[in-house]
Design a binder for these strands. Structure first.
Lengths: 203, 203
DNA sequence: TATTATATGTGACACAGTGTCATTTGTCAA
DNA sequence: TTGACAAATGACACTGTGTCACATATAATA
């Protein structure tokens, strides 16, 4: 999280920094971004950056915060609407993200965000995704909202495995969505993947 | 691939370079490794490195080549043995890799390799995994060996989706295998994931 | 053997980026 | 108007990069 100092900055200056950061995070994958480019773009002194943020990671996480919060609320709603249907909720999330990325004209930026959310979350990961946003549904709060009555799930352990699988295919589908020209193709494939997971590949 | 010059080097010198490289690639995730450390470890001049390899990526890919080739042969065998059962073959691959990593006492090194094999393979990926090793089974040769008669697969497209899903969960299971203390836990989870994919999560 | 190509090895060099810190500049209350 | 605290700054010491002119082998030729 940014420092108090950053928060107290005039809106205009904050925006200039955030804008420069967005440009840099859009330009190349996270590992290749540089603080140098951000401070030059924002026209602030190098030292100032460190007065506001502890690192690139810190800044990016802050920039993602609103989206994460909105997504959390969205998930909560959807799970209630669908009476705990996890597949339906995941599809809604997928649509929510793709639609939002499109609307905001920040396609490339969102593409990078999805890429940055590494599958390998461990201590060595460059971009340390905070626990509560590593994947939707890994939150205790949401897990309790899921209806498992018509699923082949015996215990909490099983549920986590299913969530993990859903997370993997959703992330993959999102990556493909940004990769393919056609939005339709990625969505069609995603639906197929969900179908396989629900009903199985075997005849 | 390395240059002719590197290939002609005395075995001893080559090994020293490869050994130093292995240490560096074991130490930290790929993005954080440095050529500096490798040349210092191998006691060669900085310029020499560039006489042998074009980049870190080049070197790492060369180091992986044997393993990839062995794996290819192993897959071919397994697919024939199992008469085209893709699930059985994938499980065999999983066991092959985990066993090999354990035997070679290169656990940490293999852990890094699996991490490096990004799910996001595109032009912006730092470690450009060559097409033929991006995931087992994506090769045409293998796809033809798969028996789809008792699978709910209508066309080539569907098969690719199933392969993609199997690849995702296998990679995840491998990551977990290196992450958890217990090898058993990761394998158990993997079996469960395969089971869900085969028979579905719905009751 | 001496001479000349050719291949290989080398480290200094110019760059790009990092995080820090002593110093300067700005702000506001007494 | 002074003093005290907050904020901004950029030079500094590092670490790392890829290149290139030059040094040193190795082999081929006269």
């Amino acid at each position: 999280m940014p420092t108090e100092t950053f928060m107290k900055l005039p809106e205009e200056k904050k925006n200039k920094i955030l804008q420069a950061a967005k440009e840099e995070f859009t330009r190349v994958p996270f590992e290749q971004t540089s603080i140098k480019n951000i401070v030059e773009g924002a026209e602030i002194a190098r030292g100032s950056f460190y007065q506001y943020f502890t690192s690139k990671e810190d800044l990016l996480q802050y920039m993602m915060k609103d989206d994460i919060d909105n997504l959390d609320n969205f998930i909560r709603e959807k799970l209630q609407e669908s009476k705990g249907d996890i597949f339906e909720a995941y599809l809604a999330i997928y649509d929510y993200i793709t639609k939002k990325a499109w609307k905001d004209k920040d396609l490339q930026f969102y593409k990078r965000l999805i890429e940055n959310a590494k599958v390998v979350e461990d201590e060595s990961s460059i971009l340390r995704i905070p626990k509560d946003i590593k994947g939707p549904f890994h939150k205790e709060e949401f897990i309790r909202l899921i209806d498992t009555s018509n699923l082949q799930i015996q215990n909490e352990e099983d549920l986590h495995i299913v969530i993990q699988m859903l997370y993997l295919i959703t992330r993959k589908a999102l990556v493909n969505n940004f990769k393919y020209q056609s939005t339709e193709k990625a969505r069609k494939e995603y639906l197929k993947m969900i179908d396989y997971l629900k009903n199985g590949v075997l005849k």
